[in-house]
Amino acid sequence: MSKVNELFRQDLKVINMGLKSFSQDLKKQNTEVLQVDWRPPAGGNPRMIELLNRLKNKK
């Protein structure tokens, strides 16, 4: 059986990196979720900020 079909038979267990609201939505639905407190590898430089700014919530 392919891994995708295995996934279809399992309970979803999610790791979420980024928008916290996705975690909150999953929690509301009693889906197990672990939020990663991710941060840019080189915190605090302006280039990073610029990149962060490019993050659109949805295209």
């Binding site: 267990k13 999610v14 790791i15 928008l19 991710w38 590898p41 490019r54 993050l55």
Partner: peptide, 12 residues
Amino acid sequence: SNLVIISLPGQY
């Protein structure tokens, strides 16, 4: 865990 959802800046 079986699924990772990623909404980080595109670069990363």
